[in-house]
């Protein structure tokens, strides 16, 4: 039940963020989607032992977060929810791979390096995913999907699912509240009521689907999903895409951390 509430809150928050008016929000949705996918592909192409190489990639989410004026806490909160899963798998690395390496005079299991590398990748990927939706919003993302020739049926169905998640969650919330008020000692829904509890909901869901479909038909729906105006990508959009891609490629090929390191030590000398 707390899950339901926090999920609802999360969806609404991201929806609100997507309505902000910043240079990042104004970018073409397809450009943002492509940049994100390319970013992910580049970051994930690093091997298991890479750490320093990965660090410069933090600039992309950092810049976008700053210029899109996104609050940090919700992103951190999301990371805290998702990270334990990765840590669960990654923490086995130091145990399994016990080759030791010496760094700054101390002995480490090599597994720690892979573990750290994995965690960084996880943080980066989850962050850019959330940033994408928080600066674009699902409807504009749907426009981008249509431009990628993803069939109408799928996009329409995705939007409907999204729309009805909040409606159904509210309904579920009311029903589970009613249930827990009358079953104070239970942790969840007891097995005798699984079928009827969820089943009732599913039947209501079906009726609702019927009514929604009728409402669509009455307003002339004929399997065509009309998104309305689709803005054209302009110079800014191309500049954004090429600029970041250039950065990704450079950071993939050259170890920028190392470069920075030698630059600074060179200056110090």
């Amino acid at each position: 039940m707390t899950n339901l509430t926090s999920a609802l809150y999360n969806i609404r928050l991201l929806d609100d963020l997507a309505k902000k008016n910043t240079p990042i929000h104004a970018l073409h949705p397809l450009v943002k989607l492509l940049t994100t996918v390319i970013y992910l592909a580049v970051v994930m192409s690093f091997g298991r032992y890479e750490i320093s190489n990965l660090l410069p990639f933090i600039f992309f989410p950092l810049f976008v977060t700053l210029f899109a004026e996104l609050p940090l806490m919700p992103i951190v909160h999301r990371l805290l929810v998702v990270l334990p899963l990765i840590i669960g798998i990654g923490i086995l690395n130091p145990i399994i791979d016990n080759h030791t390496v010496t760094i700054l005079g101390a002995n480490f299991s090599r597994g720690w390096i892979t573990f750290l590398s994995l965690s960084i990748k996880c943080i980066l990927s989850v962050t850019v995913g959330i940033i994408l939706i928080a600066t674009t919003g699902i409807d504009r993302l749907a426009v981008a999907m249509r431009m990628l020739k993803i069939p109408k049926i799928f996009v329409l169905q995705l939007l409907l699912t999204y729309r009805y998640i909040t409606v159904l969650m509210e309904e579920f919330l009311r029903m589970s509240q009613a249930y827990s008020l009358r079953a104070p000692e239970q942790k969840g829904i007891s097995k005798h009521n699984w079928g009827s509890f969820a089943g009732q909901l599913i039947l209501r869901t079906f009726d609702r689907a019927d009514r929604v479909y009728q409402a669509m038909l009455l307003r002339g729906f004929s399997m065509e999903y009309n998104v309305g105006r689709i803005e054209k990508a302009n110079f800014k959009d191309f500049a954004y895409l090429t600029g970041w891609c250039l950065f990704f490629v450079i950071a993939r090929i050259y170890n920028l951390s190392l470069f920075l390191d030698s630059l600074i030590s060179g200056v110090v000398k």
């Binding site: 939007l159 009514r211 669509m216």
Partner: peptide
């Protein structure tokens, strides 16, 4: 709610 099915 049956009639408002889009995102805005």
């Amino acid at each position: 709610d049956d009639q408002l099915f889009m995102t805005n």
